[in-house]
Computed example of a mutant assay.
Amino acid sequence: MSYATTYRQLQPLLIACSLAAAVVTPAAYAQTAAAPVTAPVAASSLAPGVIAKVNNVAITDAQLQRAIQQSGLPDSPNLRAALKNQLISRELFRQDAEKTHAYDNRPEVKQAVQEAKDAAITQLYLRDVIKPAAVTEQQVRAQFDSIVASLGDKEYKSRLIQVGDAAAAADVLTKLKAGADFAQLAQQASLAQNKVRGGELDWISFKTPAQEGHTQNLPLPIAQALTALPAGGVTSTPVNWNNTYFILKLEQVRPTQVPKYDDVKAVLRQQQEAAALEKATVSVVSGLVKKAKIEQ
């Protein structure tokens, strides 16, 4: 596992473990919205940035904003009301639990506090030391131009069934010849992750004849088999690649649809920024590893 992969796996955990985070799931949101806090409160003027007080303990707008962000739901008055109620309820729970003095020294509480502290420290450290290179408009445009230059005049829409051996491939072909539906058979027999979509692949375009390294990451034998099929055709023999067998169906062929630069530049920029972040992260981790004593 690469250092960059490890960082990507840890990063959501670091964010989610923030001490002040108030996470709400859609189900919890619905429950909270249906059962608002209705306890009477004394009329008072709240300080700027404070949305509520529970026995003189302030709940801030910053806490609410974090809760909205963590929820992953669209911001709305209903969501804000539900999350505000949840924050109030959570503070009521905390205060009542604290009165008993039965929880402060429990091992699981101490461990949770330490883990949250470690996560917050690590998150801030990563923010301070990992400095990815800025992505320029020229870099984004260059990537777009490179992608467009790699496209062929046609693009292909296909489905794929991946099996582990020649016997399984022969069985799939026999069932297809007997009239089995390709998509349903892919869901039943394929080993590929896209089996849930009936083996469907995205539209893909590359110059023909297909050459190694110029097939948009599609394995060369598969790309070659794909371009040899007529629309609606299925490979008569399985394609053997990397000790795995593939049966292909070419569903459609059309002239290549080249998107406008303005429609895709945001996505391309995000890709380059992610790559820059990964590169910067690997650099930091590599430097730390060189100075550390790690036993496994």
Score class of each variant (00 low, 15 high):
182 F>H: 01
183 A>I: 05
183 A>C: 13
183 A>E: 15
184 Q>F: 02
184 Q>I: 03
184 Q>W: 05
185 L>Y: 08
185 L>R: 03
185 L>N: 05
185 L>K: 08
185 L>S: 06
185 L>G: 06
185 L>M: 15
186 A>F: 03
186 A>W: 00
186 A>K: 00
187 Q>P: 00
187 Q>C: 07
187 Q>R: 10
188 Q>T: 09
188 Q>N: 04
188 Q>D: 13
188 Q>I: 09
189 A>Y: 00
189 A>D: 09
190 S>Y: 00
190 S>H: 01
190 S>N: 01
190 S>P: 00
190 S>V: 00
190 S>D: 04
191 L>S: 06
191 L>E: 12
191 L>D: 13
191 L>F: 04
191 L>T: 08
191 L>K: 07
191 L>C: 03
192 A>K: 03
192 A>W: 02
192 A>S: 09
192 A>E: 01
193 Q>P: 00
193 Q>L: 04
193 Q>F: 05
193 Q>E: 14
194 N>T: 14
194 N>L: 06
194 N>A: 09
195 K>W: 03
195 K>M: 01
195 K>N: 04
195 K>V: 02
196 V>H: 07
196 V>P: 02
196 V>K: 10
196 V>Q: 12
196 V>W: 05
197 R>P: 02
197 R>M: 13
197 R>V: 06
197 R>G: 06
198 G>T: 10
198 G>A: 08
198 G>E: 06
198 G>V: 05
199 G>N: 02
199 G>A: 08
200 E>Q: 13
200 E>C: 10
200 E>H: 07
201 L>S: 04
201 L>Y: 06
201 L>A: 10
201 L>H: 04
201 L>I: 10
202 D>L: 12
202 D>A: 14
202 D>C: 15
203 W>M: 09
203 W>V: 07
203 W>D: 14
203 W>T: 11
203 W>C: 11
203 W>E: 13
204 I>V: 12
204 I>E: 04
204 I>N: 03
204 I>P: 02
204 I>A: 07
204 I>M: 08
205 S>E: 08
205 S>I: 11
205 S>C: 12
205 S>W: 00
205 S>V: 10
206 F>D: 06
206 F>P: 01
206 F>W: 12
206 F>Y: 15
206 F>A: 03
206 F>T: 06
207 K>P: 15
207 K>N: 11
207 K>M: 15
207 K>I: 15
208 T>P: 02
208 T>V: 14
209 P>G: 01
209 P>K: 01
209 P>C: 03
209 P>S: 04
209 P>A: 01
210 A>D: 05
210 A>M: 07
210 A>P: 12
210 A>H: 05
211 Q>D: 12
211 Q>W: 12
211 Q>E: 15
211 Q>F: 13
211 Q>M: 09
211 Q>T: 14
211 Q>N: 13
212 E>R: 11
212 E>C: 04
212 E>G: 09
213 G>R: 12
213 G>D: 14
213 G>F: 11
213 G>T: 14
213 G>L: 10
214 H>S: 07
214 H>E: 14
214 H>K: 14
214 H>C: 11
214 H>L: 11
215 T>G: 04
216 Q>R: 09
216 Q>Y: 08
216 Q>H: 13
217 N>H: 14
217 N>P: 09
217 N>T: 15
217 N>E: 15
217 N>D: 13
217 N>Y: 11
218 L>I: 15
218 L>M: 15
218 L>Y: 02
219 P>F: 00
219 P>S: 03
219 P>Q: 01
219 P>I: 01
219 P>R: 00
219 P>N: 01
219 P>G: 03
219 P>W: 01
